[in-house]
Design a protein around this nucleic acid. Sequence first.
DNA 1: AGACCTATATATAAGGG
DNA 2: TCCCTTATATATAGGTC
Lengths: 228, 228
Amino acid sequence: MGRVKLQIKRIENTTNRQVTFSKRRNGLIKKAYELSVLCDVDVALIMFSPSGRVSLFSGNKSVEEVLARYFNLPEHERGSKLRVEADETYQANSKEYIISICLSQGKNLSSISLPYSFLVSVFEGEIAEITTLSKVKYQEQVLEETLKHVRMRKVYMIYELFLNCSNHQNMAQFPPEVADVNSFVTGRPNNILDWLPQRDPQVQILNFLDSNGLLPLRYLCQLCRQVG
Amino acid sequence: MGRVKLQIKRIENTTNRQVTFSKRRNGLIKKAYELSVLCDVDVALIMFSPSGRVSLFSGNKSVEEVLARYFNLPEHERGSKLRVEADETYQANSKEYIISICLSQGKNLSSISLPYSFLVSVFEGEIAEITTLSKVKYQEQVLEETLKHVRMRKVYMIYELFLNCSNHQNMAQFPPEVADVNSFVTGRPNNILDWLPQRDPQVQILNFLDSNGLLPLRYLCQLCRQVG
DNA sequence: AGACCTATATATAAGGG
DNA sequence: TCCCTTATATATAGGTC
């Protein structure tokens, strides 16, 4: 609907793509707004611009409230085909695989935070909707798994701090909470090197790293097992 | 854009509202599709029909992948005004309050499940994006909180099973895993009644319930504290 | 990135089946 | 609920600023 008919395929010219995005995004939000008012329905619309910025729309309810309503749907109403893909992706990205990729690529990481208020919304929905014991148990299981993942991440980050520490032999250079890694991770106060093979104290730190100056994967895995 | 110009306000006639929803939903999805292809952007669109059915759209990526990307955004890019509302709602719905409401209303509950693949997607995002130790620690904290909520729910459901059990004095009627509640909740094998005031075994079960035949809230709270 | 312009493409309201 | 038709309203491509 313009001077010429557009083929629906990726616009290769960057400027045109940006301009079209800007125009059509506004159009889409307007349509979504009209739908939500005319038909009195919950709508959530999330778009990521080519530059990575997010554009949101929702009607009366907040985006997170609508998403919570979505996640509170029984599984079979949520589109099962896509979930299979995600599960396959998950299988392909097991702990050790992800760690090795991260280690080998030395990724430049940016910031993130967990959607706390979202979780709260989900749980408010659940409070009113969960019914069977087995589902709650499943849920608990998922959360425990998830917690393991996060704790593994924590261990990985501590390891990163360790790598970035210029003098590996002086643990006092770490922030106080990191200095005693084991107590930090497990809550039990003991030494970070407990899980390393016992050797002469003088060469222990050197053995800690492989020929590339990296913590051998087997130690990292061991640490992960200890955490999870 | 039709024979007459529509005012953008709720369509009161139910049939018209349904028809308009159906048409405009399709239009909105088409627009969203075109935007995602033309501009090569991630789009997620969630709509709840007046009858409660969900309609979804997403481009290349699944809805849950896009939502995961949304939740992986730093907090300040996610619209902070709405989060405050959610937090206030959360404060108004403390443990004891929710439990007392559920107990007093005897809600007829329907089914639900946790979005496992969603969590997985979130974590895949995090693997690539988390950077600071404090954020991982915050995340761990949130998950631990969440796990407490779920375990509290589990306790509540066990209590429901207990109420629905016709002969309260015979714990053998519970499913094996529920018969020993404490071991079920905490993983430590001991007796469900450990946290009840010690009295004569014969009257213990009667004291378990109040004059209305319900578990007194103070016991439930005690159980919750034990779990969380 | 936005605002405006204008010709044209598209969406859709009301109605019938 | 869906499909069709048609008159009309709206969206937007390609400009310019």
